[in-house]
Write a protein that binds this DNA or RNA. Structure first.
Lengths: 213, 213
DNA sequence: GATTAATTTAAACGGGTGTTTAAATTAACT
DNA sequence: AGTTAATTTAAACACCCGTTTAAATTAATC
């Protein structure tokens, strides 16, 4: 056991930050290992390949977030009346912000990783998440469907992915948007403030009646 | 003048398709030139660098879309009563679908390029668009603000970017989502159908009242 | 048709990539 | 303490990248 932090952990910590900032393919192993102050070959030794390192980075967050989110959703679902969409989305705030306690800036890093993953991996991440966290995901989807019974399942499928796009793109550009907002409107929003802004937007969009013509 | 298509055009046609599918940095000049059946060095000869090729690919669409979109928005604005958000967003459908006539699949290619650009270029694309097409953009924003006067400007800034994220992420994953939708719900949506699905979602989200607590 | 300019071509350049190797070092165990 | 296993290290490997060069080819001009 080394006196300093575990090599594996040092790699993950450096990698997740760089992956979130610059994307997966734009981040070289040499950049990661130099930031982590470990040897280049240690990535392949501990993780096998860059692709598996990416998976490990994502899993470290998903393993915390997914069960926690499912618990919060179930707590809502057990309430006497069905929860509103706003309540369901808001139930995710606590699990998301708890990631900040796991690591500094964990919330936004996680959401940015998610967005990078969905866009860069051409569907591989979607498969990874549904096969590894499908149960937790189903809990969430069920709650949303029950809360908006007037939306047909196929339409809800699309709207939930609209929702994913909304938050994931927003977080990917959060820093740039915050700069503009500060310059133009004197606003300064942290991650939680942005999440609280986006939830009403998403809830309204998901619930809006389908017009059939 | 060659008997076949212009070299410059052949490069642009091959590049835009590959860029939209795999992203900018994942697409090598060698892949582009081999698909275009032109020599590798011709990219640097005609465009100077890969970065300038990317700009040229984007400009070819923006030069068509932006003026056309601005015209449609102004046409609405001249109508006796103020247009609804749904009408404003729907006014963009025609300019978007006209891109399909410019090139096969032009609409979705354009939207995917836009998304890739926003996420990969760390703000460079945002700068490029606002400096080159700022006037047309302002026309659109003004119409939206007038149509939802109950939303403060700072809040509208965020919501319009939520909107951008929604459509851009959706289009980036459109092929994958369509496959799932076809398998799970027997649906088959073309680009226009997806756009018509996403507009009510976005309009509802942009217009939802801000709760002040 | 000769001369000039524009374009295309094949080859090389310098540099960065993920991964592998084999030796050196450190840790764990009997 | 001596032996084995786990880890770290420096170096090299094979490959792909964007760009440049200089010669060959094609087009345009006088």
């Amino acid at each position: 056991m080394a006196s300093r932090t575990d090599t594996k952990t040092r790699i993950l910590d450096a990698a997740e930050k760089l992956f979130a900032e610059r994307g997966f393919s734009e981040t070289s192993l040499r950049l990661i290992t130099s930031k982590a102050e470990v040897n280049l070959a240690s990535v392949n030794y501990h993780f096998g390949s860059k692709k598996e390192l990416i998976r490990a980075v994502l899993a470290r967050y998903l393993d915390v977030f997914m069960p926690s989110a499912a618990i919060e959703i179930k707590r809502l679902h057990n309430a006497p009346e069905d929860a509103s969409l706003n309540e369901i989305f808001s139930a995710l705030i606590k699990p998301l912000l708890e990631l900040n306690k796991v690591r500094n800036g964990g919330t936004i890093i996680f959401l940015q990783l998610l967005g990078r993953g969905y866009i860069e991996s051409q569907g591989h991440l979607r498969w990874f998440i549904t096969t590894h966290y499908g149960e937790h995901l189903a809990t969430f989807v069920k709650a949303v469907v029950a809360s908006a019974p007037h939306i047909p399942p196929a339409e809800m499928f699309w709207r939930l992915h609209f929702t994913l796009g909304t938050i994931v793109f927003t977080m990917a550009s959060a820093d740039a948007l915050n700069e503009i907002a500060a310059a133009d409107y004197g606003e300064h929003n942290n991650t939680e403030a942005i999440i609280r802004k986006v939830i009403p937007y998403m809830a309204a969009g998901v619930a809006v009646p389908v017009l059939n013509n």
